[in-house]
Structures are given as structure tokens and as C-alpha cells.
């Protein structure tokens, strides 16, 4: 009966604390052989920017197309509404309404939607994806901002062409949309990114984006000469004003090109500063 010896002979608690199997062995890490690992290189700014930008652009195909139309519908609606309200005899008024409605599309997409997007990514912890990659933060911000500015292009063109036809403005000046779109897009997307990344809560990012868009709506579309003096000072402090003015001025019969250039330079300066702030905010978001 030796086979059942232990079982029959040793009654009592069966579960006994026993020495761990191989307790004398080291329990440290298994050390892999092979050549020493050299840390990979950081991905350079250019390729990283291109990858972020093209990746984001693909999102337009999937999700953003309805939003492009919403942005254009809103501005076209405003153009139709104001057609019956404003003094269409004034050339300056007509120019500003069309320019303001066009820039409003940029503000809706690049500022408002981007602020919401970054606010939501930050709140969900989804920025970890970018922050764990070996890429310059500025490439992430610029690539995303650039893609949102690009999302605004179709809506802005539709609005500007429709507005020029509706308000009887020269269509041959619409080439000015190109520099305005680039610089207004960069500055407003930079602001949107900064708002989204700096807002402590996603709701505040949404409010900030909406507020920014409302400022463009009121101070961009309503003709400057109809605004009270105090509000005119505020208008001068808002970056989108310079994009609106540059586009409005280019509809003039006699364009003051230096004025247009100065307006565009202001947009460029705002773009540089706001994108730098957003990139710094992204770095900070990763080390909270």
C-alpha cells in the first residue's frame, strides 16, 4: 500500500504552505542575448508633418464631409438673410459681408471644430497616442491645424463665389482667397488648437471655440462703420478681422495692395504665435 501511503497516513489540512518550487533560483528578469539596443531616432519634422496631415485629411472622407456642408450652409444662409437687410448700395458693405461670411467658414471649421477636437482628445487621454510617438509636437499641431484649415477650403470657396454673385462683386478677384485661406486658416486653426489644448475641460474648449466663431460672425460680417467706437477697438484686436479686411479690400475697384499685405502679415504673425502656444500646450498636456 505504499502507493497511498502519504494520502492515508497524513490526514489533516491538505493545503500546506510549502517552499516555492525552485525557490533557490533567482527570480530576476530573464536576460535576453543579442546586440545592444540603440534608441531609435526622432522622426524629422517634415515627414512627421506630412504623416499627420495626410492621416487627418483621410478623416474628412470618413467623418467630416457633412460638417463641411454645415459650415457652408450657415454662411450661405447668412448671405441670403443679409441680402434683404443691408444697404446693398454701399460697395464697402457688400464687400465686407461676403468676406466676413467666407472667413466665418474658416472660423467654424478651423477654430471651432479643432478646439472641440483637441479638447475631446485631451479629456479622453487620446493625446497619449501622439505623445508616445517620437515626433516633434509642433508637427502634430501644425499637421492637424493644416488639415482642419484644408477642411474649410470647399465651404469657403462655395461661400465666396455664391456671395460674389449674390452681391454683384467681381469674380476675378477671388484668387485672393488662396492667400487668405492659407493665412486665416493657419491663424484660426492655431487659435483653435491652443484653445482646445489649454482648456482645462472639454466643455470649456467647446465654449471657447463657439465664442471665437461668434466673434468672427459679429465683428467680421457686420460692416465696421456700423459698429460703435468701443466695439471697433475690439474688432481691431481680433485676428480674423485682418483676414476679412484683406479679402474685402481685394474686391475694391482700386485695391490698396500694401494694406492687403499688412493685413495678411498680421494673420501670419498670429498663426506663428498661436501655433507655438498650441505646441507648448501639447508638450505640457503630456506631462501633467
Amino acid at each position: 500500500m505504499s502507493a497511498v501511503g502519504p494520502l492515508a497516513a497524513v490526514p489533516g489540512p491538505i493545503i500546506a504552505r510549502a517552499a516555492a518550487d525552485g525557490a533557490d533560483e533567482a527570480s530576476g528578469p530573464a536576460v535576453g542575448a543579442g546586440p545592444a539596443v540603440v534608441l531609435g531616432r526622432r522622426t524629422a519634422f517634415g515627414p512627421a508633418l506630412a504623416a499627420v496631415y495626410t492621416g487627418q485629411l483621410a478623416r474628412a472622407r470618413v467623418a467630416r464631409i457633412p460638417l463641411l456642408f454645415v459650415a457652408a450652409f450657415q454662411s450661405v444662409g447668412i448671405l441670403l438673410l443679409l441680402r434683404g437687410v443691408v444697404d446693398t448700395g454701399s460697395e464697402t458693405t457688400r464687400e465686407q459681408v461676403v468676406a466676413g461670411a467666407s472667413v466665418l467658414v474658416v472660423a467654424f471649421v478651423a477654430l471651432n471644430l479643432l478646439a472641440q477636437r483637441f479638447g475631446a482628445l485631451r479629456a479622453a487621454g487620446a493625446l497619449d497616442y501622439y505623445l508616445s510617438l517620437p515626433v516633434p509636437r509642433s508637427a502634430v499641431v501644425l499637421g492637424t491645424a493644416g488639415s482642419y484649415a484644408t477642411f474649410a477650403v470647399p465651404g469657403t470657396i462655395v461661400t465666396a463665389v455664391f456671395g460674389a454673385l449674390l452681391y454683384d462683386l467681381p469674380l476675378d478677384r477671388l484668387w485672393m482667397l488662396a492667400p487668405v485661406l492659407v493665412l486665416a486658416g493657419a491663424s484660426l486653426a492655431g487659435l483653435g488648437a491652443a484653445i482646445g489644448l489649454l482648456a482645462p475641460k472639454p466643455e470649456l474648449a467647446t465654449v471657447g471655440g463657439q465664442l471665437g466663431m461668434s466673434v468672427v460672425l459679429f465683428l467680421g460680417i457686420i460692416p465696421a462703420d456700423r459698429l460703435p467706437v468701443v466695439v471697433r477697438a475690439v474688432r481691431a484686436a481680433v485676428p480674423s478681422t485682418y483676414a476679412v479686411d484683406a479679402l474685402a479690400d481685394s474686391f475694391h475697384r482700386h485695391v490698396h495692395w500694401w494694406g492687403v499685405v499688412v493685413d495678411l502679415l498680421v494673420c501670419a504673425a498670429v498663426a506663428v504665435v498661436s501655433l507655438a502656444v498650441a505646441a507648448a500646450a501639447l508638450r505640457r498636456a503630456g506631462r501633467a
Partner: peptide, 19 residues
């Protein structure tokens, strides 16, 4: 860390709209 390690976090929101 990102130069040697790849990270899979819990939220995939940054990629959700991509094929």
C-alpha cells in the same frame, strides 16, 4: 521613451476616424 517603445493606450480616439 517613444524612440524605443511603442505604446498602446486604452483610448483610441486619435485613430477612430481613420481606416
Amino acid at each position: 521613451a517613444g524612440r524605443a517603445a511603442a505604446y498602446l493606450g486604452q483610448d483610441d480616439g486619435a485613430l477612430a476616424d481613420l481606416p
